[in-house]
Design a binder for these strands. Structure first.
Length: 213
DNA sequence: GACCAGGCACATC
DNA sequence: GATGTGCATGGT
């Protein structure tokens, strides 16, 4: 069965090709990046990640040991650095208390249960939790972000008042439950959003889509 | 100098 | 449940 979402994907994939997401060297880097990129331009996040790498601190046990104050200074370029340092620390406490600091152990439990656990961590909302599940742990969970909502809205595929879970359900009920597909699909929507949506509310994706041969 | 970027928690109604 | 606000840097 080929639905509307499959056709949109085929068209976008044909135009943009693979996006190679998430740009990171490890699952832990994906998680740190997911928290740092909250409402923040990726180039600022990359600077912060590189800074952590330069100090050889981009490992769970290392970040768990350093002070929140030092962490905040190291991730300054990512913006909201105080609150993000606190959020990273809160996640690390969760990781060490529940899974002895092991992402492998964390990945071993049921995806639905883990999602609930992640959502209970202060500072991890639905998008961050799902980014961790999909891009760090390779679980078949669709990630929804502002680009996703904006693009679907412009194509009248969702309602204005659609909530996170509504949009996520729309993808997950109409696509094959496949982490590789979910990975590429969300990444390609972000690519489309970045490339086409220069301003906040241009009605441009529709025109752009029609031009993708 | 204004606007924007791969959210989230919290207060208030 | 909906709406408003604080959090902050760096590129355009």
């Amino acid at each position: 069965m080929t639905g509307k979402l499959d056709l949109i994907y085929e068209k976008l994939y044909k135009h943009f090709g693979p996006q190679h997401w998430w740009p990171a060297d490890s699952a832990f880097e994906v998680i740190v990046g997911a928290i740092l990129t909250q409402n923040t331009n990726w180039s600022n996040v990359r600077k912060a990640l590189n800074n952590l790498k330069k100090h050889k601190l981009l490992k769970p046990e290392k970040l768990y040991r350093i002070s929140q104050k030092r962490l905040a200074a190291l991730i300054r370029s990512a913006g909201y650095f105080n609150i993000k340092a606190k959020r990273l620390k809160t996640f690390l406490n969760f990781l060490f208390q529940s899974y002895q600091g092991s992402l492998k152990k964390m990945s071993g439990i049921d995806t639905g249960i883990l999602r609930q656990q992640l959502l209970s961590v202060n500072g991890i909302g639905p998008e961050t939790a799902d980014s961790i599940l999909l891009y760090a742990l390779n679980k078949p969970v669709f990630v929804v972000d502002t680009y996703t909502k904006r693009i679907l809205l412009r194509h009248c595929l969702i309602k204005e008042n659609a909530r996170y879970e509504d949009i996520q359900d729309f993808f997950m009920k109409n696509l094959k439950r496949d982490a590789k597909l979910f990975n590429e699909y969300h990444a390609i929507l972000v690519r489309l959003g970045k490339e086409i949506c220069i301003k906040k509310k241009p009605r441009c994706e529709i025109c752009a889509l029609k031009n993708y041969k």
